[in-house]
Amino acid sequence: MDICLSEDHETIRENVRKVCDQFDDEYWSRCDQEKTFPFEFHRAMADAGWLGITMPEEFGGANLGVTEAAIMMHEVACSAGGYSAASTLHLNIFGPHAVVVNGTPEQKERMLKPLIDGTDRACFGVTEPDAGLDTTSITTFATKVPGGYRVTGRKIWTSSGQVANKILLLTRTTPKDQCKKPTDGMTLFYTDLDKSQVEVRRIPKMGRNAVDSNATFIDDYFIPDEDRIGEEGKGFHYILHSLNPERILVGIEAVGLGRGALARASRYAGERKVFGRLIGENQGIQHPLAENWTYLESAYWMIMRAANLYDQGKPCGAEANAGKFLGGRAAFDACTRAVMTHGGMGYSTEYQVERLFRESILLRIAPITEQMILSFIAEKVLDLPKSY
């Protein structure tokens, strides 16, 4: 058992870092304060070939695994951009997986290439106001008409909807009460997001303001047959393929965010003098930071184990969910400690840790809450009765 990064993995890490280092604190503070999408960063990562890290080579991708994607996304989140930088990219990694697995050759050619080269930007239309994490209860409905479907419904927390020109959209094509199983009767589309016909309304929020979140209103919107992914009624099963990679990537991004905050706190503690001595000489400062390191490190290797299992085609649901849980907690604690270590200056924007702190709380909530993860592990690992 060799628990370390390979030479190729180190090369990925170093080359991703080179791109990220071109975008400093000032750039990310401006994007956050002005609520501006980081177009320049997105373009730089596309030009360097990173947007297609898990995509098939024939469409311009690198055909690497989730392990390599995790290494990449950890380095992105560890950079000055934090979780905003990661959110700029990560839909490209797990979102189009349904197209890769279930799309026709024509769809793959048409849909994947523009995502990989950065021409297209996609958003994810799954969550709804009255369904939340209960995806089987979505009500956005696609009615079959000649040549396609007419879709009506509402989505919420649609990330990057303001700048996206494509949407991966989950709908119902059969009402839930008419299906044998709640997971039946849902259909997946990857289609144009025409904002002259679909209202995408930005949601004001606490953090990660460089990447917008939205309420999306769809009213009798036509989607052509050629934009349906796979069979009608099988959409829920298609997105399941993306859930474990999503947990893995969000978890590793959390660890990267936490490590970035911890590095800032440690640097400050090694420079700041109070009462004639460095604050980093005090165990009251040292010990909490050292504890943050231990939790971030343990989360990192749990997530890398999950990624390795996924790439081997082995079950990894427990590990992926546990890794996301540990990463989210460890990131929040590290970012909180970074603010506290800076004292009053931690509350200012100058040292950036307040920005990272505001992002860190999201990683305990989305894309799945801690409570849902614990319920999953209780049922699937500990063989306890389902609680909901």
Score class of each variant (00 low, 15 high):
Val163Gly: 02
Thr191Gln: 04
Val198His: 03
Ser196Phe: 03
Asp130Ile: 06
Leu168Ala: 14
Val211Gln: 14
Phe217Ala: 10
Val198Glu: 06
Pro224Trp: 08
Asp184Thr: 00
Pro129Thr: 01
Lys195Ala: 01
Arg154Lys: 14
Thr143His: 11
Thr152Arg: 00
Thr139Ile: 12
Thr119Val: 10
Ala210His: 04
Asp192Cys: 01
Lys144Gly: 03
Thr139Trp: 07
Tyr190Asn: 01
Arg172Gly: 09
Asp212Glu: 02
Val198Trp: 04
Gly125Pro: 01
Lys181Phe: 15
Phe141Lys: 00
Phe141Cys: 00
Ser196Arg: 11
Tyr149Glu: 11
Gly148Trp: 01
Glu226Cys: 11
Asn214Pro: 08
Lys181Tyr: 14
Leu188Glu: 11
Val211Ile: 15
Val145Trp: 10
Lys195His: 09
Thr173Tyr: 02
Pro114Gln: 05
Thr152Gly: 02
Phe217Val: 10
Tyr190Thr: 06
Thr139Lys: 15
Ile218Asn: 01
Thr171Arg: 00
Phe141Thr: 00
Glu128Gly: 02
Ile138Lys: 01
Trp157Tyr: 14
Lys205Asn: 07
Asp212Val: 02
Ser213Thr: 11
Phe189His: 05
Asp227Trp: 06
Asp117Pro: 04
Gly185Ala: 10
Val211Phe: 05
Leu188Phe: 12
Ile229Ser: 09
Thr216Lys: 05
Thr183Phe: 13
Val145Arg: 05
Asp227Leu: 01
Cys179His: 02
Asn165Ala: 03
Glu232Gln: 07
Phe124Asp: 02
Arg208Leu: 15
Gln178Asn: 12
Leu115Cys: 02
Ala210Ile: 01
Arg150Met: 14
Lys234Glu: 15
Asp177Gln: 13
Thr127Trp: 10
Val145Phe: 07
Ala215Trp: 13
Leu193Ala: 08
Thr127Ile: 12
Lys166Met: 09
Asp177Arg: 13
Lys205Ala: 06
Arg202Tyr: 05
Arg201Asp: 10
Trp157Gly: 03
Thr216His: 07
Arg150Phe: 06
Pro146Ser: 10
Asp194Glu: 09
Ala164Cys: 14
Glu226Ile: 04
Gly235Lys: 01
Lys144Ala: 13
Thr158Gly: 13
Thr140Val: 07
Gly148Met: 01
Asp220Asn: 13
Thr119Phe: 06
Asp120Thr: 06
Leu169Ala: 07
Asp194Met: 10
Thr187Arg: 05
Lys166Val: 06
Asp184Lys: 06
Gly207Leu: 04
Gly161Phe: 07
Ile203Cys: 04
Pro224Val: 11
Asp192Lys: 11
Asp192Gly: 00
Val126Ser: 02
Ala164Asn: 02
Gly233Trp: 02
Thr171Gly: 00
Ile203Phe: 08
Asp130Arg: 09
Cys123Val: 03
Val200Gly: 04
Asp212Lys: 03
Gly235Ala: 05
Leu170Asn: 05
Thr119Pro: 03
Lys155Thr: 09
Gly153Gln: 03
Lys180Phe: 04
Val163His: 08
Thr119Gly: 10
Pro224Ile: 10
Lys195Gln: 13
Arg154Ile: 11
Phe222Asp: 05
Lys181Leu: 15
Pro175Ala: 11
Thr135Cys: 01
